[in-house]
Deep mutational scan, measured.
Amino acid sequence: TGEEYIAVGDSTAQQVGDLTFKKGEILLVIEKKPDGWWIAKDAKGNEGLVPRTYLEPYS
């Protein structure tokens, strides 16, 4: 379980453990880390770190 967020920009994984996503994708945020990198899952079930500045709450 988690909260749904929509990507407001494209982000390409810079290192192992990062999640690549495109603008408009809905991501499920699993954990919000205080350093600004959140753990999220995409629609295909891929999981990784995403920069919170690229996400907005999805409603």
Rank of each mutant, 00 (worst) to 15 (best):
Y58G: 05
D42C: 03
E56Q: 11
L27A: 00
L55R: 01
E56A: 11
E31C: 12
L55N: 01
G48F: 05
P51E: 14
E4M: 15
P34A: 12
T1Q: 13
Y5M: 05
S59K: 13
V29T: 01
I6K: 06
A7K: 02
T20G: 08
A7T: 11
G24S: 03
I26T: 04
L55A: 01
V16K: 12
G9L: 15
Y54K: 14
D35Q: 04
P57L: 10
W37Y: 12
T20N: 09
W38F: 05
V16R: 10
E25L: 02
E3H: 08
E3T: 08
V29H: 00
G45N: 05
E4Q: 14
W38A: 01
I6M: 08
D35K: 03
P34G: 10
S59R: 11
P51K: 13
V29Y: 00
I39D: 02
D10I: 03
G17H: 06
T20A: 11
L49Q: 09
P51F: 15
F21R: 00
K32I: 05
T12Q: 12
A7E: 01
L28W: 14
G45T: 02
G48V: 04
G9Y: 15
P51S: 13
V50D: 03
D35N: 11
E56R: 11
S59P: 12
W37K: 11
Q14C: 13
L19S: 02
L55H: 01
T53K: 13
T12G: 09
E25W: 09
P51A: 11
E47P: 04
L28C: 10
K33C: 14
G2K: 07
G48N: 01
Q14P: 09
K44D: 12
I6D: 01
V29K: 00
T53Q: 14
T20I: 10
G24Y: 04
F21K: 00
E56Y: 08
E31P: 00
G45V: 00
G2C: 14
Y5Q: 01
D42Y: 00
D35L: 04
W37S: 08
I30D: 00
V50I: 07
S11F: 15
F21N: 00
D18Q: 15
K44E: 10
E3I: 09
P34N: 12
D42H: 02
E25M: 08
S11I: 14
E3G: 07
L28Q: 07
D18Y: 15
S11V: 15
Y54D: 08
E4K: 14
E31Q: 11
I26A: 03
T1M: 13
R52Y: 15
V8D: 02
A13Y: 09
A43T: 11
F21T: 02
A43Q: 11
V29G: 00
K22G: 05
T1P: 12
K22L: 09
T20R: 08
V29S: 00
D10M: 04
G17S: 07
G2D: 07
T53D: 15
V50Y: 02
A13E: 09
K22Y: 09
A40W: 02
T1S: 12
G24L: 03
L49T: 10
Q14T: 14
Y54L: 15
G45I: 01
L19M: 05
